[in-house]
Structure formats: structure tokens, C-alpha cells
Write a protein that binds this DNA or RNA. Structure first.
Length: 475
RNA sequence: GGCCCUAUCGUCUAGUGGCCCAGGACGUCGCCCUCUCAAGGCGAAAACACGGGUUCGACUCCCGUUAGGGCCGCCA
């Protein structure tokens, strides 16, 4: 039997971190076992579902690289299938029945029960009803007595007493099917072999198993993944910060970093931390999924992101980098320095957003001097150094890191200075601030023209500042 | 309140009865490297929730307590 898993989100919001991990584990399990992965949109609650959410979820999946073999199926387009199944149960007479209680009545009873400390379960009062008033009715599944247990692939043995399970509604009074019923009909008719989902669904499992049996279908395997919690150990939600996959994309995270992080949250393979998607597929098994919930740790994600950025070939990030620059007002698509520039930024950027921002100085016409840095480093003593370096750079045969270093060393030797005494002022002259990539690689990437111009501009700046001139920039 | 699940460093985790006075990673701190910032290297602090069993021997098995989470909808 070939393995078939599914991811079945409800389109009531964006793809969030928890959903993404559920999708990932389903995908990994299917790929590892050379099986199929199905995407199904659970929009049986038509009122709450939106087209945009469904679209956002598909985009999130694609961005993460989680491709599906079948679907997306939409429950809203399968209502007749559910109705046929529900009627089958109703026809049997003993498996389902019509309930004429109104939602308002039910709510009242539930609240009363809660207040008295009783379990807020439906009491089954319409079970015995033999009349058929001309009133709206919902269809309820008649939960049989006994116990329902199963062997969860991550949690182990789980058992429920059926007396704890109420007669659930499978068809609303408007004729639409409910979640627990749709899931069963869908998973059965789509031949899902392994249901892998969040453990907030573990209580639904016995209800669904009972439904499978009533319908005469085989019960699939279940694997319930522990929840992802926020730093305060409650269910991860918006107030814990960014929780949507899209948000991480926008902040400049790489999909592999997110995938790697999510995989290691709840799953492990010895001491290994870094996994390519291929490696995850090869190594992923449900046995190595932990049973306990885990706290989402943005700092570790950030570390992974930095890891993936610094180990990316510069060409791989080019497009994304360009579009981020563009958003900052820089069109660098035709700039021949592009790859060299990216290379200088690779190992000092935690996100793509940060990378684009720290690249800005390479492209601006006028360097904006940071006031404090300028006061400290753009001094009258520095001016002749800049002039000399500008000459040295002009005279270079090859404008390479080695050549540039040579030009620096000439000056250093002549003046008897340490590199720091020259590099830091030069850094301010060229970038406007005191933080940048290594001085030689940075100058090589900046280019000869601009480096010389900016040095000369800094000399002018110093001279005019000496005469009381205003702060400005070099070229 | 009832039911279900869970319990190793701050966090993610390794550990499947002796290899563990518990290993790795993020984070934190210190040192080294160093032209700044990073990266990198080295090192440090940091955990088996508690109580009973079982066993020659428990982080590992069982029971209980405690704590956390989840679910109790004509939401999914």
C-alpha cells in the first residue's frame, strides 16, 4: 500500500508557523516513503472561509517548496458527497438521527451545565424522537457505547471512553456538513493512509474513528504532532510576534532556513542541526518526532537564516537582493559590481532585508556621513592620508584586494602607522559610518572611481568643515 | 469542572536500564583572531519537576503528586 498523506488547512487566515510545520511533516513523510501528498482546503464553513486565505496558503506552501501531488481540493465543492454519506447514516436509522434543538437552546444548556460543573455535552434528547415536525433540524451521529482506542504513531496508545463523546452534529440545519464529518469522508474517499496533524485534534480522533466504522471505511493511521507554543508556553499566536510564513518571507528569511528550523522543532536526528530539504526527506521518520510541545524560538531561526545566507552562492540570492534594493530605491540590475557586493555582505547579514540595507552605501551618489563617526574620524590629520590613498588607488595596475592592500601598506610604512589608524577613517570616508565589510574587499567591490571620488570628497568635507562649513558628503 | 496529552540546561533536543556526577545546538558570558561589524576558533555557567515503587543498578520501566498544554460549538 502506498503512503498517502494530506495537509488540510482551513482558509480563515494566512499559513502560520504551526500549519507550516504540519504541512512539512506530512510532506516529508510522504516523500520519504515515496508516497503521495494531497492538499485539501477545509472550507466547509463557507461564511468564514475566504479566497484570499486559500491563495495565501498555496503561496506559502510553494514558497517553502512543499509541492503536492493532488489538489487543492475544496470541501465547499464536495457538499453533495457529504450529503450522500450523511443520508446513508440516516437511512440506517440506528447510526444517525434528526435533532430539532435550536442552537440557542443548546448554548443555554451548555452554559448551565458549565455553571453547575457538569460536562457540557449534548444530552441526546432527540435520539428517541419518533415524530417529524416541520422544523429545521440538524443531523447528529449516534455515538455507540464502549471505548475507542488507537495506537498513535507519535503518542503511542490512546484510549477514550465513548461516554465522554457527545452525539456530534454531522449536518447543520442548513444542510451543510461539519468538520469532523467532512474530514472522515474526505480522508476515506481520498484514500489517505496516514493522518498527520496537530495534537489539538487528538480528541477528535475517536469521533472520527467511530464515523469511519459507521460508514464502513477502513480507519487510517494517526500521528498527532505536539503543538508549537509561544515564549509564555501558550499556544503560538499573533501576540507572540510574527507567526505567518509570509511575514518571515517579507523579513528576508530564506525558505530553507524556515524549513530546517521547523523540522528541528519537534523532530531530531541525533545531534545534527543543519539539514537540506533532500536530507530531511532521506532522514525523516515519525519515530524521531518528540511527544512534547515546543516553544518557538525566533533566535534560533535567525541563526539558521544567517547560516543559510552566508553559505549561499552569491548568484543564488541575486534576484531577491535586487528586488529588495529596488524597494529601497536602488536599481542595481545592470551593475557589474553586483556579485562582488553581495559577496562582501554574505557573512554579516542575518536577513535579506538587513543585507539590502547595509548594501545601500555602495550605490548612493552622496555618502551621508554619520555625525559622530565624522567628528571622530574625518579630521584634518586624516585629510592628507585620504589624498595619498586616492593617488595610490589611481596608480594601481590591478584594482584587486591585493593591490589595494599594497596601496594601504605603502602609506602605512611611510607614516609608520598601524592599519587601524588608516582603515577606520577611510571606512567613514567611503561608507559614511564605522561599520562595513573588510576594508580591502569593500573597496574592491565599491570600485576605483567611486572610492577615489569619495576620498576626495572627504578631503573637501574636512577642509570646509574646518572653515565652519556644513556637514555634507563626498561623491 | 470533565476528558486527553506532555514533563532532560532559559529554548530546541540526544539519551530506549549500566557507555551519563547527562551529549549537541541556539542564546548568554569569557578568551583568541582582528581594520570596524560579522564570521571563525577555544572555553565557561546552565537541566534529568517531585514522591513512591520495580531492579544488583534508573534520566530511561510502573504508580501517584505537581505543573504545563489541548479539547469539550449547527468553528476547523
Amino acid at each position: 500500500m502506498t503512503v498517502k498523506t494530506r495537509f488540510a488547512p482551513s482558509p480563515t487566515g494566512y499559513l502560520h508557523i504551526g500549519g507550516a510545520r504540519t504541512a512539512l511533516f506530512n510532506w516529508l513523510f510522504a516523500r520519504h516513503n515515496k508516497g503521495q501528498f494531497v492538499l485539501r482546503i477545509e472550507d466547509s464553513d463557507v461564511a468564514r472561509s475566504t479566497e484570499e486565505s486559500a491563495q495565501a496558503i498555496l503561496e506559502g506552501m510553494s514558497w517553502l517548496g512543499l509541492d503536492w501531488d493532488e489538489g487543492p481540493f475544496f470541501q465547499s465543492r464536495r457538499f453533495d458527497i457529504y450529503r450522500v454519506h450523511a443520508e446513508r447514516l440516516l437511512d440506517e436509522g440506528v447510526l444517525a438521527y434528526r435533532c430539532y434543538c435550536t442552537p440557542e437552546e443548546l448554548k443555554e444548556r451548555r452554559e448551565a451545565a458549565m455553571k453547575e460543573g457538569r460536562p457540557p455535552m449534548y444530552d441526546g434528547r432527540c435520539r428517541q424522537r419518533s415524530d417529524a415536525p416541520a422544523l429545521p433540524y440538524a443531523v447528529r451521529f449516534k455515538v455507540p457505547p464502549g471505548a475507542t482506542s488507537f495506537k498513535d504513531l507519535v503518542k503511542g496508545g490512546v484510549s477514550f471512553d465513548n461516554s465522554q463523546i457527545e452525539d456530534l452534529v454531522i449536518l447543520r440545519s442548513d444542510g451543510t456538513p461539519t468538520y469532523n464529518f467532512c474530514v472522515v469522508v474526505d480522508d476515506a474517499t481520498m484514500n489517505i493512509t496516514h493522518v498527520i496533524r496537530g495534537d489539538d485534534h487528538i480528541n477528535n480522533t475517536p469521533k472520527q474513528m467511530l464515523l469511519y466504522r459507521a460508514l464502513g471505511y477502513d480507519v487510517p493511521e494517526f500521528a498527532h504532532l505536539p503543538m508549537i507554543l509561544g515564549s509564555d508556553r501558550t499556544r503560538l499566536s499573533k501576540r507572540h510576534g510574527a507567526t505567518s510564513v509570509t511575514a518571515y518571507r517579507e523579513m528576508g528569511y530564506l525558505p530553507h532556513a524556515l524549513v530546517n528550523y521547523l523540522a528541528r522543532l519537534g523532530w531530531s536526528f541525533g545531534d545534527q542541526e543543519i539539514f537540506s530539504p533532500e536530507e530531511l526527506i532521506e532522514k525523516f521518520t515519525l519515530e524521531n518526532v518528540g511527544k512534547s510541545s515546543g516553544v518557538f524560538n525566533p533566535e534560533k531561526l535567525l541563526w539558521l537564516n544567517q547560516h543559510y545566507i552566508k553559505s549561499s552562492p552569491s548568484g543564488e540570492l541575486r534576484e531577491e537582493f535586487l528586488s529588495r534594493l529596488k524597494a529601497l530605491g536602488v536599481d542595481a540590475s545592470a551593475d557589474p559590481r553586483l556579485d562582488a557586493i553581495i559577496k562582501t555582505l554574505l557573512e554579516r547579514s542575518k536577513t535579506l532585508a538587513e543585507m539590502a540595507e547595509s548594501a545601500l552605501f555602495y550605490f548612493v551618489e552622496q555618502v551621508a556621513f554619520d555625525e559622530k563617526s565624522a567628528r571622530k574620524f574625518l579630521t584634518p590629520e586624516a585629510a592628507p592620508l585620504f589624498a595619498e590613498l586616492a593617488e595610490g588607488l589611481k596608480a594601481l595596475d590591478a584594482f584587486t584586494e591585493e593591490g589595494i592592500e599594497g596601496a594601504f601598506n605603502d602609506i602605512l610604512d611611510r607614516k609608520g602607522l598601524k592599519l587601524g589608524k588608516l582603515a577606520q577613517p577611510v571606512r567613514v570616508a567611503l561608507t559614511g559610518g564605522t561599520v562595513s565589510p573588510g576594508i580591502f574587499e569593500m573597496i574592491a567591490a565599491l570600485g576605483r572611481e567611486r572610492s577615489v571620488k569619495r576620498l576626495e570628497g572627504a578631503v573637501e568635507f574636512i577642509e570646509s568643515a574646518g572653515g565652519g562649513g556644513a556637514a555634507g558628503g563626498g561623491n
